[in-house]
Amino acid sequence: MEIVILITFGLLSLSMILIFIRLLMGPTLPDRVVALELLATVIVAITGTYAIFTDRSSFIDVAIVVALTAFLAAIGFARFLERGGPRDD
Rank of each mutant, 00 (worst) to 15 (best):
I3S: 14
I3H: 06
V4G: 10
I5L: 09
L6T: 07
L6W: 10
I7M: 04
I7E: 07
T8Y: 01
T8M: 09
F9R: 01
G10F: 12
G10R: 04
G10D: 02
G10W: 08
L11A: 12
L11R: 07
S13L: 14
L14Y: 04
S15Y: 03
S15L: 12
M16T: 07
M16I: 10
I17Q: 06
I17E: 08
F20I: 12
I21C: 04
R22C: 01
L23I: 04
L24G: 08
L24V: 13
G26S: 07
G26Q: 07
G26E: 04
P27I: 13
P27C: 07
L29A: 14
L29C: 06
L29R: 10
L29V: 08
P30Q: 06
P30D: 05
P30S: 06
D31C: 06
D31R: 02
R32L: 08
R32T: 00
V33L: 09
V34K: 03
A35P: 00
L36Q: 00
E37S: 14
E37F: 12
E37L: 13
L38A: 12
L38K: 15
A40T: 08
A40F: 08
A40Q: 02
T41Q: 10
T41R: 04
I43T: 07
I43Y: 02
V44T: 07
A45F: 12
I46A: 03
I46T: 07
I46Y: 01
G48K: 02
G48L: 13
Y50K: 05
Y50H: 09
A51Q: 00
T54S: 08
D55L: 11
D55F: 15
R56G: 10
R56F: 05
S57T: 13
D61P: 00
V62M: 03
A63V: 07
I64S: 10
I64N: 05
I64K: 13
V65S: 14
A67N: 03
L68G: 14
L68Q: 05
L68F: 11
T69N: 08
T69Y: 07
F71I: 15
F71P: 00
A74Q: 05
I75V: 12
I75P: 01
F77R: 00
L81C: 01
L81I: 03
P86T: 13
R87G: 04
D88W: 13
D89P: 01
D89F: 07
